[in-house]
């Protein structure tokens, strides 16, 4: 506390006469805002013009679909366990393929998801990754529960993110 009041005092003392009468400072502030008024605008006019996020962006989580047409997920349920929002439900079942298990049901409730990316981080199979999709709007609760049909995304569309993960995870 003592320190702050000291530094406050010092600050007041350090002010020059012109700063103290305040009006030139106001003028400076006004000049600054005026300068900004005539600068180019940053606004992106959304529906016409879309933001393409960088690979580090965490959009909605999706399941990786291999080129062979199989999902990578083995339904281990770790993502479901780690998900702080309990958004994921996985039901495993047996498959003839070598990996033995596959998700018979894989649902993410997008109303629960908080886009933390923990599911992606915990997945031992690199099977769930955060996509760049941020356009999520629903008109009822049921629509917000994404099943495998909406989650499976070809690996070719996720190259960016997977590369990013391999580099930084």
């Amino acid at each position: 506390m003592a320190q702050t009041s000291d530094s406050l005092k010092k600050r007041k003392k350090d002010l020059t006469f012109w700063q103290k009468i305040y009006i030139p400072e106001i003028a400076k502030g006004l000049a600054l805002t005026f300068k900004n008024m005539i600068r180019p605008k940053f606004t992106m006019e959304y529906p016409e013009e879309k933001f393409i996020p960088p690979p580090s962006y965490r959009g909605r989580p999706v399941l990786v679909l291999e080129e062979t047409g199989e999902e990578r997920c083995v339904a281990c349920g770790l993502c479901s366990r780690v998900c702080p929002a309990l958004a994921i439900e996985v039901q495993a079942a047996e498959t003839e393929r070598e990996k033995e298990r596959y998700p018979q049901k894989f649902e993410i409730n997008m109303l629960r998801c908080i886009f933390c990316g923990l599911c992606e981080e915990v997945c031992p199979e690199e099977a769930i990754v955060m996509s760049k999709d941020y356009e999520l709007a629903f008109t009822n609760r049921e629509d917000a529960i994404y099943g495998k049909d909406k989650l499976l995304t070809p690996v070719s569309q996720l190259k960016d993110r997977i590369e990013f993960l391999r580099k930084y995870k």
């Binding site: 083995v74 339904a75 281990c76 770790l78 990996k99 033995e100 298990r101 031992p124 199979e125």
Partner: peptide, 10 residues
């Protein structure tokens, strides 16, 4: 093996 993800014992 690194089977924990597919192992019921996990």
């Amino acid at each position: 093996p690194l089977d924990c993800p597919i192992c019921d014992e996990a």
